[in-house]
Amino acid sequence: MSSSLVRVLLHRAAVARVTLAPHQTLRKTSALSRCGSVLHRQIRGINTFTLPLRTEEKVTINFVNRDGKKISVTALTGNSILDVVVDQNLDFDGFGACEGTLACSTCHVILEEDVYKKLGSISDEEMDMLDLAYGLTDTSRLGCQVCLRKDLEGMLLRVPETVADARVDSQQESST
């Protein structure tokens, strides 16, 4: 009797210590993401081929991380940039802190001008959060608000530095 109890307790102790690297977050709140990708995934999970709505296609996108390293990934259309970063476990520190709910600006990415234009209009709410992003540029977007499309094949996204530059910081100084 005692030995089986020991086993149970040992097991409990082990379960309590499941390891997860802190950046490997379990964010799956993309239900809120603009792209509705979760919906797509669920549909796919139920039945792949009888549904005519299966619109996903593969696109390759390229990130340049904060160290200047290029990372190419293949992702499905209908996902947001944030979905891709989370699903593929791309290690960009602090990316997507609010989990795609337009409340943080940590998913800031910088696009090439033609891609930026191709994406079209931006909501006021996204612009509002972008205004708080470090190193804001004229082609900045929030990754949680950009949905992948076939015509974005090969797009290049720069993940900007987060080091406080003096000018932006003085602006932030006042925000509380």
Binding site: G94, A97, A164, S175, T176
Partner: peptide
């Protein structure tokens, strides 16, 4: 000092 949003604190 007591200014800035959570993202500022994170950085």
């Amino acid at each position: 000092g007591p200014t800035g949003v959570i993202a500022t604190t994170m950085n």
